[in-house]
């Protein structure tokens, strides 16, 4: 459903010159699977997911969503994807329902199917209170609910959640994770990016640890723990990063990365 191969992205930075935000990243996500993308801030998670949502263009490699290439068929990719991140805010001067309706129409859902679909989603996400509320009046949790509703309104086969629980209180975060889990049960391919280890352990079938634009390790949680002989996910994560830093600093390897 999602196929990423040797994906690279570099951009010009005023201070640092050409910066490689992604360097030959490869992974695959199958239907009914939650793939966790794990990494600290600035590791390249958001860049990678933005390429998948066709907002950014890759400078090298291949990315396919539901069989469509992000470069050749961006419109088809967008139609088959539900994308939610910290940067996909909701409109202040629209109610929750109008917001979902608007995007439903942009996705081309016929009007007679759209209204029942929205009613279902409102029921499912328990968002009756925000349906008629303007975005500017909503709390962070309410906004997040509307965002999720917007993400799934067209029932896409692929879903991408970029740090969906950041800034949420425990109760709402739990509800969000439950929703994602139920979406997995519907057979969706889901990418879930976070830097919270607990969520990864609970939710993800497979994970990849990404740091400075490169994937350091990938596999199921158990595989990784066995491979590196480290039962604690958090310790494993720091260990991987420490090893990588050493590799960069050692002089005989500098040529490889420069």
């Amino acid at each position: 459903m999602i196929r990423v191969q040797d994906l690279s992205k570099s951009f010009a930075d005023l201070k640092r010159g050409q910066v490689k935000a992604l360097d030959s990243v490869s992974f695959e996500v199958k239907p009914g699977e939650i793939f966790g993308l794990l990494g600290p801030n600035g590791a390249g998670k958001t860049t990678c997911l933005r390429i998948l949502s066709t907002v950014l263009r890759p400078t090298g490699g291949l990315a396919e969503v539901a069989g469509y290439n992000v470069m050749d068929n961006p419109a088809q990719v967008r139609a088959n994807i539900g994308f939610m991140s910290g940067n996909t805010g909701i409109y202040d001067r629209m109610t929750g329902r109008e917001m979902v309706e608007y995007f439903g129409r942009l996705y081309g859902i016929p009007e007679n199917e759209l209204q029942p679909r929205i009613d279902d989603i409102i029921e499912m996400l328990q968002m009756h209170d925000v349906a008629e509320m303007l975005g500017s009046k909503m709390s962070t949790g309410m906004k997040q609910k509307v965002s999720i509703a917007r993400t799934i309104v067209h029932d896409p086969p692929v879903l991408i959640f970029d740090e969906p629980t950041s800034g949420l209180d425990v109760l709402v975060a739990r509800a969000v994770l439950k929703t994602i889990e139920s979406l997995k049960d519907q057979g969706k391919s889901i990418i879930f990016s976070t830097h919270i280890m607990r969520e990864v352990e609970k939710l993800c079938d497979r994970i990849a640890v990404i740091y400075k634009g490169e994937i350091l390790a990938s596999g199921t949680v158990n595989e990784l723990e066995e491979k590196y002989n480290e039962p604690d996910m958090e310790e494993l994560f720091f260990e991987l990063i420490r090893l990588r830093e050493e590799e960069i600093d050692s002089p005989n390897n500098t040529g490889q990365n420069g």
Binding site: A75, R78, T88, I90, Y107, G108
Partner: peptide
């Protein structure tokens, strides 16, 4: 500024 630009960019409209 309001952070809705990306929301719009990921919709199917070109």
């Amino acid at each position: 500024e309001r952070g809705t630009m990306e929301t719009l960019l990921i919709c199917p409209a070109s």
